[in-house]
Nucleic acid binder design. Structure first.
Lengths: 241, 241
DNA sequence: TTTTTTAAATGGACCGGTGCAATTCACGCA
DNA sequence: TGCGTGAATTGCACCGGTCCATTTAAAAAA
């Protein structure tokens, strides 16, 4: 992935953990790891912190560092798939073929709320992009996105029918790596039902997000309505910091 | 909160940011902050990293550190409330009066799935606790929790009618600080509709979680069905680490 | 004036260290 | 046998430094 020291340690520890090398569920102490890997203890700590934030290990002062047993026996319903922006560009498709159907594409003046969220002046314009996302022909998500035209002036129907994020990464050389995300549920509308092939009683999952570029520029406001069986957001939460 | 150096820096920077002290949305550089606060640059970096992970600031190498504008103008629909376990013990009640109604409380053998998730032997027992949570008399959540009896042998109806987590914190002196969390949506069942006063077409939000003690001991498996208007999970996500 | 080059500013990675706090464990005493 | 007590183990906070990559700005050249 990268040539950074602490990331190499992460990668290697991950391998060793998954290979069940630490039978007693206990990792070597930080000082030993520092010697084993020939890196400073700081770098070891950094690597371990990342793993702890992912819920893969637990650290206990005075006692040691231990592997989260639930990570090994992940035949359970819990399968944490690492950080993702909640966006389907980085979706774990698991063999299914993702596709996109463009519903609508136009340029409109930014509403007041969009002005705030995308940090725009009152007279600026945004693309409004409505898309239907499918997995193996099965529609699962209606996505309405708003992107300032000034950020990507040359957007067109063809680009928008593919992955916008990867297009941006190539042309602007700026990755979309951060987002505010809000997750809720809602009654399905007639449109939802038609597009997502839902029964009247079946709901949608709603994910709203503001996506940012590396440098903090708000890039897109997105509203996603998902077939309720396809929305499953999993995460590891820690109140410590 | 604590007497830790980097946390003091976080607290103070937070204040200064909210007080709009940095009019140009730019923070002093790390080396200056290090001098101002009379702490090492490492500690400054640590503090800034926390703030960056919360989405409050963005760092740009070679350029500086900038405040996320959306944090100041938070009159928008986005109001990020910091890390929480998704549990209502730490709920932002905002004036509303939370209460609990105990629906059911018994001891049962751990199912196979519970054995895995709570790391139990086949012959161990768990409490099954069904509770209805309300805000100002309005029921909003049906919660079914499973806790190994060996962890809290002296649990009773009275304790369970209040906050289990704060009871644990007092008696075991071990806080519940981490959780796997899974968020989805579902059609409401007849029971949901009755208890949460939902119409037949209205859905529930579903939050499933495994909660851990500080030391990594799986403490509780919880399944929560929420009135869909009360489920709103917000978070800041970054793919970098 | 415009372009190119150079230097300064600024965050990132990493090191190797000090002292401390929580836990564990062995040893000695009762 | 059981219970302290103290030493060893282990992670935590923090320091202050080196060198580097990226960005911006100033200086020099065209």
């Amino acid at each position: 992935m990268a040539d950074l020291v602490y990331q190499q340690v992460i990668t290697d520890l991950n391998k060793r953990i998954m290979a069940n090398e630490f039978i007693d569920k206990k990792l070597p102490d930080e000082r030993s790891l520092s010697e084993q890997y020939h890196v400073s203890r700081s770098s070891i700590k950094r690597a371990l912190n990342v793993l702890a934030n992912q819920g893969l290990i637990f650290k206990k002062r005075g006692s040691g560092t231990f592997i989260n047993p639930l990570y090994l026996k992940n035949q359970s319903s819990f399968k944490y798939e690492g950080t993702n922006l909640g966006i389907t560009d980085s979706l774990n498709t698991e063999g299914a073929q993702p596709s996109i159907q463009l519903l609508d594409f136009q340029v409109i003046p930014a509403s007041q709320e969009l002005q705030q969220d995308l940090f725009l002046a009152p007279d600026e314009f945004v693309y409004e992009i409505k898309r239907l996302r499918l997995l193996d022909e099965q529609p699962f998500m209606i996505e309405t996105g708003y992107i300032p035209i000034k950020l990507v002036p040359e957007l067109n129907r063809q680009i928008v029918s593919g992955s916008i994020f990867s297009y941006v990464q190539k042309t602007l050389k700026a990755a979309v790596t951060k987002s505010f995300l809000s997750i809720s549920a809602d009654v399905s509308t007639a449109t939802d039902q038609k597009l997502l092939t839902l029964k009247a009683t079946e709901p949608v999952g709603v994910m709203g997000g503001i996506f940012f570029l590396d440098d903090g520029t708000p890039f897109e406001v997105s509203n996603m309505r998902l077939h309720y069986k396809y929305m499953k957001y999993t995460t590891f939460v820690s109140t410590e910091q």
